[in-house]
Amino acid sequence: MLAIIKRDFRSYFNSPIAYVLIGLFICIMSLFFVDSLNAGIASFTTNFISSMSYLLLFIVPILTMRSFAEDKKSGTEVLLMTSPVRVYQVVLGKYLAATAVFLVMAVVSLVFPLVLLIYGKPDGATLFSSYLGFVLLGMVFISVGIFASSLTENQIVAAIISFVSLFALTSISFIGNYVGGFVGKVLDQLSFIERYYEFYYGIIDITSIIFMLSFAAVFVFLTVRILERKRWSQG
């Protein structure tokens, strides 16, 4: 598994994709940064971190699109699947590699709070919980992206599938509010974005952490099933 993490992580940085994504992310975030500063320090974290997470909606599909799709296309999937490793180790390896790239991005983006800490007095606790929420949200998004990538051998299709699913998943609570009643309540409970909001209001709820990690685990598990199903397929 470690071998796969290492290989995939390096492959992200061997191609321009990791640099372009991180660069793009930082670039756009600095625009938001200036904008959020104008809105005042009080609402800074709320504004800033929430825009950061919306940007993830675009960044993550591009990050994860090649994960399995490329292996399928180039035939290296055969190598992974016929090596003495279990399918879940392959999936987890690829998932953790993408997460590692995402963490690099998150660490680079710490430059913004750092500027704040030097020139102002932001609420450290809120900042911390927001970042924790951001990282958890990223992990959820990546699991969906990896899942989408396992469905197809075309990277563009993978990116579009993951973007659409992420968009739908983040809109669940809006739909829930709109529908109302029992269905609305269920959808509301399922919405990880609701959970995520809590983090940037400074609430670290252990159930929310577990919820988001389980959400990611479910999609990792589904990816394993997809790859195994392919082995068994009759068509």
């Binding site: 290989r7 492959s11 061997n14 191609s15 035939g75 290296t76 999937e77 055969v78």
Partner: peptide, 10 residues
């Protein structure tokens, strides 16, 4: 396999 499984970027 028929198509050698190689990572082109390595």
């Amino acid at each position: 396999p028929e198509q050698p499984p190689l990572y082109q970027d390595m």
